[in-house]
C-alpha cells in the first residue's frame, strides 16, 4: 500500500465500533473511516455509525458475509483497505477481531499490535503499550509503517452525535469459505454476567469452608453486586462455578467497585480486576499484596469484618 493516511475502524459488534470511533477521534490522524460489512442493505448499521467525527463509511455487502466467517471478512476488509488506504486499521478485540486482525496484517504484509493500550501515532510511527507476562509487565511497542491494531473491549466511551459521512460501496471478490457454519447457540440472556457487573464481590481462599461463602450473601444483595472468586475456589475446590473466576485464566472484570474478600492479590488474579474503578480489600494479613493494589483496605478477620460492613452499609442506606 502506498500513501496511507487516516484511520479505518472495524468491529463485528457495532457497539464496539462506536468505542473505536471515539479512539479514532482522539488520535486526530486525518480521515476517520468506518468499515461496515455484512449482508443486506446494512442501513441500520450505517445510520448507527454515522456519528461525530466519521468522515467515510465503506460498505461491503455480500451473502457470504452473513455468517461472519473469518475468510470472507478478511477479503472484505482487504478490499476496503485498498480503497481507503488507511495508515492504521483499528479492530475491536472480540473473538472474531482477534482472528481477522492478524490475518489482515499478514495479507497486507504490515505489522500487527494486539490488545493495544495508550495507542499513539507520531512521525509515521504507531506506538502502543501492551500487557505481557501474565499482566506482570507493560511492553512498549512500535510499528514501522501501516499497522493493524486491536483494542481491548470497553476501553473507550461510545461515540455519540451525528454526521453525514460519505458512504462508499466497495465491491469485493469474496469466495465462500471452506469453513461452514452449522449452528449457533445464543448465550442465555437475563443473568448479569460478572463481566458486565457494576459491583463485584469476590471471595478467596480466606474462606475456610464452602458454607461460609453465605457470609457474603447479605453484602452481595445490599450492594446489588455479582459474586466472583479467585481460582482456588473455582478450579481447585469447585465451590464456585468457573465462569465466576476473576483473573488471568478466568474473566476480566471492570466494575465501578471491586471488593476482594480473603484474596491475597497474586498477579494472576490482579490481571483480571486491574481496571476496576475502585478496589476494596479485606484480608487479615497486613502484608498481603492486595493492599498494594487497593484504594481502601481493612486489615482484619473477614468473619468479623464482613457482617459489620454489611450492617454499616445497610444502616447508612436506611434499609
Amino acid at each position: 500500500m502506498s500513501q496511507q493516511q487516516g484511520i479505518l475502524v472495524y468491529s463485528d459488534l457495532p457497539e464496539v465500533t462506536l468505542e473505536l470511533i471515539t479512539l479514532g477521534q482522539k488520535l486526530r490522524a486525518g480521515n476517520l473511516s468506518v468499515a461496515v460489512i455484512g449482508s443486506g442493505d446494512l442501513q441500520d448499521q450505517i445510520s448507527k455509525l454515522s456519528v461525530d467525527g466519521v468522515t467515510n463509511i465503506y460498505k461491503v455487502s455480500n451473502d457470504s458475509l452473513s455468517g461472519f466467517i473469518g475468510k470472507p471478512m478478511v477479503d472484505a476488509l482487504e478490499a476496503v483497505c485498498s480503497e481507503a488506504k488507511p495508515n492504521v486499521i483499528i479492530v475491536g478485540a472480540t473473538r472474531r477481531g482477534r482472528e481477522i486482525a492478524p490475518r489482515l496484517a499478514t495479507r497486507l504484509k504490515i505489522g500487527c499490535i494486539t490488545d493495544a493500550l495508550n495507542l499513539e501515532m507520531a512521525n509515521g510511527k504507531v506506538s502502543a503499550e501492551r500487557l505481557v507476562w501474565g499482566g506482570n509487565a507493560l511492553a512498549s511497542v512500535t510499528s514501522k509503517g501501516a499497522t493493524v491494531v486491536t483494542i481491548p473491549l470497553h476501553s473507550n466511551q461510545k461515540a455519540t452525535g451525528s454526521a453525514q459521512p460519505n458512504v462508499v460501496e466497495v465491491s469485493a471478490n469474496l469466495n465462500p469459505s471452506k469453513v461452514k457454519l452449522l449452528g449457533k447457540k445464543e448465550r442465555p440472556q437475563g443473568q448479569v454476567s460478572i463481566k458486565d457487573a457494576e459491583i463485584v464481590v469476590s471471595a478467596g481462599r480466606g474462606f475456610k469452608k464452602k458454607e461460609d461463602l453465605s457470609l457474603l450473601d447479605g453484602l452481595v444483595s445490599t450492594l446489588h453486586a455479582v459474586m466472583g472468586a479467585s481460582r482456588p475456589l473455582t478450579s481447585d475446590l469447585g465451590w464456585v462455578p468457573e465462569e465466576r473466576q476473576v483473573g488471568l485464566s478466568g474473566t476480566t472484570v471492570k466494575p465501578k467497585l471491586y471488593i476482594a474478600v480473603g484474596i491475597s492479590g497474586q498477579i494472576q488474579h490482579l490481571t483480571g480486576m486491574r481496571d476496576s474503578k475502585v478496589v476494596v480489600a479485606i484480608n487479615n494479613d497486613k502484608n498481603a499484596p492486595i493492599f498494594q493494589e487497593c484504594d481502601y483496605g481493612v486489615v482484619g478477620d473477614l468473619y468479623a469484618a464482613v457482617p459489620t460492613l454489611e450492617k454499616a452499609l445497610k444502616s447508612q442506606l436506611g434499609s
Binding site: A137, A139, S140, T142, S143, V279, Q292, Y296, G297, V299
Partner: peptide, 22 residues
C-alpha cells in the same frame, strides 16, 4: 519484523491505599 518491543516496565498502580486497621 515490523513490530519492535522497546521497553518492559511494571504497570504502576495508582491506588489510594487507605488502610483501616484495629
Amino acid at each position: 519484523s515490523k513490530i519492535e518491543t522497546n521497553a518492559l516496565n511494571v504497570p504502576k498502580s495508582a491506588r489510594k491505599r487507605i488502610i483501616f486497621e484495629g
